[in-house]
Design a protein around this nucleic acid. Structure first.
Length: 640
RNA sequence: GCUGGUGUGGCUCAGUCGGUAGAGCAGUUCACUCGUAAUGAACAGGUCAAGAGUUCGAUUCUCUUCACCAGCUCCA
């Protein structure tokens, strides 16, 4: 039997375990956790009995991390089972930065119980139980899990495919149904911590019982764990929901309600800067601005399909059958712009028609879903719809992507995003409008465009809009979760529903195709992303206050006021601070507020006819006010 | 919506085993005019998230509601 290990070919007379093969190749260092044999992750105890290629995984690889953390999850389950013998086990996988295990506790626990659980886990690690895999028959597995009352495991086994290998892992007195792979013994988990306790539905469905999920993380060393926890703290400090409030960008109020942030002067200024920039650029690219009502009779949403697919998420005023008129706040702009399109006959010569609107939208999100500026009930979308012929789709799609890319570049986030091709879930047809044929054709059309551009993207089933597939541009927030920032959607359905048409070259009435797109996305969410990306220190051109002018003593107050006036006259967003006392504090505050430039004016500066310019990095130079204005203008120009 | 946690002046927090609350910073005033993390003094600021209940008496105990946080589900 010949096994190629990390490029080295070794001969074995008899079947060997992975770790024996690794040892033979001199690769079983303490960091090694598992192997990959012919492409599949295998644990160290796995027996190799045929030719193949083996590589050794250590903790630095994602697979290696998953093996260690999955074992940590089992140790957690074992500890919990010891302390709470009546607990029922659900599932416990490794996830991106750690692991979790779902439990059904007879009486719920709180985070205060973590100390005891962690202590028990340490005991299990110290005991260094060997972890033994046993392959069993379906009947045997069912029998064992039934006998121990593990109803969730029974359900899991019952749902396994006929030909699945069913395996059990035992460590000490604890046995769990699991596909593996695992470490060879519990002692190999060197550092772990339980991080949070939350609820999670059994099998991810809200129709099922809510279980208690314990999250934790594990590393191959204590310093690595500490470093990770420190990074987590750092991420929390960047959370837009925290610094956005600290920096007085937005606030909420319990009398106003959930998901309804108030943009304070600084936040409103940022929005205005972005909105002007976006609307001007869209105009340059042939978009026509519309301004449509934020509400309408529900008839409109019946035509669009929103009423059927979306009613629960709409703010509706009035009741059908009771009131003469039922109105709803709009969750989307499409039907309004379509109505504008339909006003007057369109020729193929008019196409493409590109409508854009800075649209305020309302969605009645469920109470637990709101978060800071990323998930709100009223938001402002740089929305737009392109009505075009089938031939124009590709070009218009690319142009829509191009403007997004341009905005991303100006915001400095082009390397912080990923592309997602969001398709429908064919098994859940009721969620969508349009026939299978239309969906298949549209999805393959979009795929060919994406592939044609050479875009690197992930495919996601079940993430499409109800009327068509989407290209979503995703960014990861400080909590490690993905948000959709921008989106482009191809829609072959709504033109039909709205009876939209144009007259083609031969005088025939033809259905147009519609591209739904946002350019800078939802302003609130994009702002949240920027705050987190820049840790509140926004780029100069977006910064709501670009310069803060301070007087060092009361004698220079007049000069401060004059400098502020001059800067404002040149379009520099400037804030005055003429309170001369506590200069040290003021400077610290200015740093906290992430203002790009501070000017300090003291007696000496006045004599020398200069201002002291200090930037965010702490560099300080003296220059004339005129030179400073010139510098700042150039800097802004270079950013766009 | 579900699970768990939290809610005391603008901010950060203390406190009351039930007898209606304090500190630091911020604010205001006066004095100081100082070169980059804090000048001094005085003043002002809270129906302890809201409502109901128990009680002679509730910020404290119970219940309900609201908001905030983490997660699940959902989503731009």
């Amino acid at each position: 039997m010949v096994i190629k290990i990390n490029g080295k070919e070794l001969n074995f007379d008899a079947p060997v375990k992975v770790y024996e093969a690794a040892e033979a190749a001199g690769l079983s260092g303490s960091g090694a956790v598992a192997g990959v044999f012919n492409g599949a992750t295998v644990e160290f105890n796995h027996v190799l009995d045929k030719d193949g290629e083996l590589s050794i995984l250590d903790f630095s690889s994602d697979e290696g991390k998953a093996v260690l953390r999955h074992t940590a999850a089992h140790i957690l389950a074992q500890a919990v089972k010891r302390i709470y013998p009546t607990v029922k086990l659900a599932i416990g996988p490794a996830v991106a930065n750690g692991f979790y295990y779902d439990f059904d506790f007879k009486t719920p626990i709180t985070q205060e119980n973590f100390d005891a659980i962690e202590a028990e886990m340490r005991k299990i690690i110290k005991a260094n139980y060997p972890i033994v895999k046993k392959t069993v028959s379906r009947a045997e597995a069912l029998e064992l899990m039934r006998a121990s009352g593990e109803e969730y495991k029974v359900e899991l086994i019952a749902d396994l495919p006929e030909d699945a290998e069913i395996s059990l892992y035992t460590q000490g007195e604890f046995t769990d149904l699991c596909a593996g792979p695992h470490l060879t013994s519990t002692g190999k988990v060197k550092a772990f911590k339980l991080t949070s306790l939350t609820g999670a539905y059994w099998r991810g469905s809200e129709k099922n019982k809510m279980l208690s999920r314990i999250y934790g993380t594990a590393f191959d060393s204590k310093p690595a764990l500490d470093e990770y926890l420190e990074k987590l703290e750092e991420a929390k400090r960047r959370d837009h929901n925290r610094i956005g409030r600290d920096l007085e960008i937005f606030m909420t109020d319990e009398n106003i309600g959930q998901g309804l942030p108030l943009l304070m002067p600084k936040g409103a200024k940022i929005m205005q800067i972005l909105q002007r920039f976006v609307e001007d650029e869209e105009e340059n690219r042939g978009y026509l601005l519309t301004k449509t009502p934020i509400m309408s009779k529900n008839n409109l949403f019946k035509i669009s399909g929103h009423w059927d697919h979306y009613k629960d998420k709409m703010f509706v005023m009035g009741e059908e059958g009771k009131d003469d008129e039922v109105m709803a706040l709009r969750p989307m702009t499409c039907p309004f712009q379509f109505t504008i399109y339909k006003n007057g006959l369109k020729s193929y010569r008019d196409l493409p028609v590109r409508y854009c609107e800075t649209a305020t939208l309302y969605r009645k999100e469920a109470s637990g879903e709101m978060h800071g500026l990323t998930r709100v009930r009223q938001f402002t979308l740089s929305d737009g719809h392109i009505v075009c012929t089938e031939k124009q789709i590709e070009g218009e799609f690319k142009a829509a992507l191009d403007i997004i890319k341009y905005f991303m570049k100006c915001l400095g986030i082009e390397n912080d995003i990923s592309y997602r091709f969001s398709k429908r879930d064919p098994k859940n047809a009721s969620k969508y409008v349009g026939s299978d044929e239309v969906w298949e054709a549209t999805e393959s059309k979009m795929k060919s465009i994406l592939d044609g551009i050479g875009l690197v993207y992930e495919e996601a089933e079940g993430e499409a809009a109800f009327y068509g597939p989407k290209l979503d541009i995703q960014a990861v927030n400080v909590h490690g979760k993905e948000d959709t920032l921008f989106t482009i959607q191809i829609d072959f359905s709504l033109a039909e529903r709205f009876d939209m048409s144009y007259i083609d070259e031969s005088g025939e009435k033809v259905r147009p195709t519609i591209i739904h797109r946002s350019s800078i996305g939802c302003y609130e969410r994009t702002l949240a992303m920027l705050i987190e990306k820049y840790n509140g220190a926004l780029p100069l051109w977006i910064s709501p206050v670009q310069v803060r002018v301070m007087s060092l003593t009361g004698r220079t107050e007049k000069q401060v006021k004059k400098a502020v006036e001059t800067l404002r006259k040149h379009g520099v967003r400037t804030e005055a601070d003429v309170r001369s006392e506590k200069i040290g504090y003021k400077i610290r505050e200015a740093q906290l507020e992430k203002i790009p430039y501070m000017l300090v004016i003291g007696d000496k500066d006045i004599e020398a006819k200069v201002v002291s310019v200090r930037d965010r990095a702490g560099n300080q130079v003296s220059m004339s006010l005129a030179a400073f204005v010139k510098q700042i203008k150039k800097e802004i120009k270079d950013m766009k």
